[in-house]
Amino acid sequence: MDQQRKLAVVTGGSSGIGLELARLCAAEGFDLVIAADEPEIQAAAEELRDEGVDVTAVETDLATMDGVDELLAAIEATCRPVDVLFANAGRGLGRGFLDQDIADISHVIDTNITGTVYLVHSIGRQMRERNAGRILLTGSIAGFIPGSFQAVYNGTKAFIDSFAFAIRNELKDTRVVISCLMPGPTDTEFFRRADMLDTAVGQQDKDDAAMVARVGFDAVMNGDGDVVSGWKNKLQTVLANVTPSGLLAEQHRNMAEPGSGSADGP
């Protein structure tokens, strides 16, 4: 890797928002370490190399400590400090909580929370020691809403949103920037993987992943603390703060209950 170029790390970089974030980094001349738990990460790396930057692809399960260690080892092998970490990896899970498999539940929690916290802790310490660096965590407006038929996922995003705000405050007297991107429903593989294609939210029009990534990329580069992508999502977060939790849960049920989408789609 070119020692003169800055290094960005993107998790969940094989598709969706993560791939779009990696494309933005490549266009800005960052060398990259990208990670995902699927072989498509290799194809993403080949595409990004066409921008003339060096790319290391790591196929590993970031829900496990060993998987995060594998990513950390790949980063260390570059002999470079991480200038920007995009902690974007995440998993969703639809259906009723008691109908879900506990192994699937654990995988969502371990991907969205445990692995993310471990990675941010490891790289964040290095940034604090250098007194330099930026971290963008991908939270969600789902973190503001009790997620009927998405209870575990929304709960993990509530954690990430809160976690990001808290560590930003802890580091406010340093030059380490913590930002949180909070998108709404986005046009990615998320709803297929979460088995939610038959729901209203799974079938509705969604935000463009490239637009969402651009909002998050600009936020962390500008040093913003948090950003919600899209005016409809911004309005929803404002209303969530003044709406009773029971009503929010019922509204979410209407979006996420299996079979709530029309057979012919939107």
Rank of each mutant, 00 (worst) to 15 (best):
P81R: 05
T156V: 06
L72A: 10
A132H: 10
A87K: 07
A151K: 09
I75S: 11
T237P: 12
S162E: 00
G143F: 08
T138D: 08
D205V: 15
G29L: 03
V10D: 07
T111W: 00
C79M: 13
A57R: 10
L62V: 12
F163A: 12
A8F: 05
D101W: 00
D54T: 13
E51P: 01
V108I: 10
L62I: 05
A63I: 00
S148L: 12
D69M: 06
R134F: 03
V58G: 09
A263W: 07
A210D: 15
T188S: 06
I135F: 02
G124D: 04
H121T: 15
P183T: 12
F191V: 12
E70Q: 12
S122P: 06
G29V: 00
D37K: 12
S245C: 07
P185K: 10
A158K: 07
M182Q: 15
A164M: 00
R134G: 03
T64E: 05
T174A: 01
G12V: 14
P266K: 13
G265A: 09
D173G: 04
S229W: 13
C180R: 03
E59H: 06
D187A: 12
E170Q: 03
T114R: 01
A194F: 14
E51T: 04
V53F: 00
Q3T: 05
Q203R: 15
E40M: 14
V33M: 09
H107Q: 15
L181E: 06
G12T: 11
P183C: 09
N169K: 03
L71T: 08
L181A: 07
G92Y: 09
N222A: 15
T174Q: 04
V9R: 11
D83F: 10
Q204R: 15
H107R: 15
D226K: 05
